[in-house]
């Protein structure tokens, strides 16, 4: 343990390093994906106008009306502009998982059993949420 000095410990620095690069890349991907979407550089699975005319509806109603991405069904349609933009947001949501995996590895190497378990449990919770086992569909 090296908590007791004013400098952040190794695990914290590794997390910060991974987070910096993952989030910087994330912001770039999100903006680029959106540009592809709104400037219609790729075909769209649902036209922007159609989405905009119905965004007052609830998520369940809108998804009944149009094949918008839910669960992981969208992956095969990634070459559509709207799906690509959605995928960029998915990447942003996965950023924390990547950081936690990196820090779990550091804790494991430091033989810090408690925090290896906590970090891995946290990864499991997020992967469970990401899997769509609960929450996907209507």
């Amino acid at each position: 343990m090296n908590d007791n000095h004013a400098h952040p410990n190794n695990a914290q620095l590794v997390y910060a390093f991974v987070l910096h690069w993952v989030s910087t890349l994330g912001i770039f991907i999100v903006v680029a994906g959106f540009a592809v979407y709104v400037f219609e550089l790729l075909p769209q699975s649902v036209a922007i106008d159609a989405v905009a005319k119905s965004w007052h509806l609830s998520a369940a109603e809108l998804n009944q009306r149009y094949p918008l991405p839910t669960g992981w069904t969208w992956v095969s349609d990634i070459l559509n502009g709207d799906i690509l933009s959605f995928a960029s947001i998915v990447y942003l949501s996965a950023a924390t998982i990547l950081c936690l995996l990196a820090v779990a590895w550091v804790f494991l190497k430091e033989k810090n059993g408690i925090y290896t378990v906590i970090a891995l449990l946290q990864v499991l919770v997020l992967v469970f949420a990401a899997s769509g086992i609960i929450g996907s569909g209507h």
Binding site: V30, F34, I48, V51, A52, W55, A59, T70, F86, G135
Partner: peptide, 11 residues
Amino acid sequence: HKGAVLPLIAV
């Protein structure tokens, strides 16, 4: 997963 994130609004 519930389709409640629209890039047009979120980005």
